[in-house]
C-alpha cells in the first residue's frame, strides 16, 4: 500500500518527528480539511491509548523462575547428552558389526562354492559350518558309543 504524503506527515507527527516546515504543512492541510484533522486526532488518541497499555513486568519472582528453569534444562541437556552419546555409539558399532558380518558371510559363501561340492544350506554356508552328511554323523555317533563302552569296561 502506497502511503499518501498527508498520511506520512501524520505518522511522522505521531512520532514527534516533524521538521518545522512539515509541521506548518500539516497545519495548513488541517485548515483545509476538517476530516483530515479528525482522522489525525483519532490516530493520536489511538497512539496514546495503546502506548499507555504497556505491560512492564511478569508475575513476581520472574528471575527466580527463569534461573530454576535454566538450571533444570542444563541438567536435562546433560542427561540427554549422555543418552544421545550411548545411542550414537550403539549405532556406530552396530553399523560396523553389520558391515563386518556381511563381509565374512560373503567370504564364507563364495570360498565354499569354490572348494566343495557338498550341498549345504545357505545359512550354514554363510556362517561357515563344516559340511556334515548323515553318514558322517552316524559314524561319529558309533565312535562315541564305542568309547563309552570301553570306558565302562575299564571302570568295571
Amino acid at each position: 500500500m502506497k502511503l499518501t504524503y498527508e498520511r506520512k506527515l501524520m505518522l511522522k507527527a505521531l512520532e514527534d518527528n516533524l521538521s518545522s516546515g512539515e509541521e506548518e504543512q500539516l497545519q495548513a492541510l488541517f485548515k483545509d480539511s476538517s476530516s483530515l484533522k479528525r482522522e489525525y486526532e483519532e490516530l493520536r488518541q489511538t497512539h496514546v491509548l495503546v502506548s499507555a497499555a504497556r505491560e512492564e513486568s511478569f508475575k513476581p519472582y520472574f528471575a527466580e523462575r527463569v534461573l530454576k528453569r535454566f538450571n533444570k534444562e542444563q541438567l536435562s541437556i546433560f542427561t540427554d547428552d549422555s543418552y544421545n552419546y550411548l545411542v550414537h555409539m550403539f549405532y556406530r558399532f552396530a553399523f560396523t558389526a553389520f558391515i563386518v558380518a556381511m563381509l565374512l558371510g560373503s567370504y564364507n559363501l563364495f570360498s565354499k562354492q569354490d572348494s566343495t561340492s557338498v550341498d549345504q544350506p545357505f545359512i550354514e554356508s554363510v556362517i561357515a559350518l563344516p559340511p556334515l552328511s548323515i553318514n558322517d554323523a552316524s559314524s561319529n555317533i558309533t565312535l562315541l558309543n564305542n568309547e563309552v563302552i570301553n570306558y565302562d569296561e575299564n571302570a568295571n
Binding site: 500500500m1 502511503l3 505518522l11 483519532e42 490516530l43 489511538t46 491509548l49
Partner: peptide, 20 residues
C-alpha cells in the same frame, strides 16, 4: 514498517473507536 504501521493503527482506530 511504515505501511504496516499505517494499516495497523487504522485497524486499532476502528476497533477502539468507542473509547476514542
Amino acid at each position: 514498517v511504515l505501511s504496516r504501521y499505517s494499516r495497523a493503527i487504522d485497524k486499532l482506530r476502528i476497533l477502539l473507536k468507542p473509547y476514542l
